[in-house]
Amino acid sequence: MSEIYNIEPFKNDAIEKAAAESSPVLDNGPSTFLTQLLGFWVTFRTMFKKPNTVQYPEVKEPTAPRFHGRHQLNRHPDGLEKCIGCELCAWACPADAIYVEGESNTEEARFSPGERYGKVYQINYLRCVFCGLCIEACPTRALTMTNEYELADDSREKLIYEKQDLLSPIHQGMIMPPHPMAPGADEGSYYRGEVKGVQQ
């Protein structure tokens, strides 16, 4: 270990050689009265360039495709929720922004394939740092992020998003849970993507 903490100054021949060869200050030629006036030309020329401004509330530019925005709780193609209430997202969260309470599915009220579903799901957007560790932690790909960035509100309560705020909407072929699993399917076939949407 003692070698690591040696107090000899670190010397790198290559660096010292390079430093000796190059001059420390870039030489842009002599500074004359005209070169000092160049700045005025820069600002004047800029007046004829197109401004970068986006007229935000009226014009919204799309974000980068993988922008970390508001979260979304996804559904299987037949409408059952993907979340199984395992709380891995809450454990992964460095900002302690996620709160999950799981509950067992019953045959009368089934929200997700398999044993458990997320009964309470809250994300506090005053704490969330949009790091995406929760998405990495999710074993069923139930939690993903959208590109939605307009997350401003006028009270702390409104910025705690509940499960109904985060759940993805019911799309074509989905049925609002609770409803039983597709005939003959178990949770394995759901995870393998063998269950398709309901024909209407």
């Binding site: 600002t43 004047f44 800029t46 007046m47 360039k49 197109k50 401004p51 970068n52 401004t53 007229q55």
Partner: peptide
């Protein structure tokens, strides 16, 4: 406005 357009703003 003038300072803005000199800085590529509006």
């Amino acid at each position: 406005r003038i300072v803005s357009i000199m800085q590529m703003r509006i």
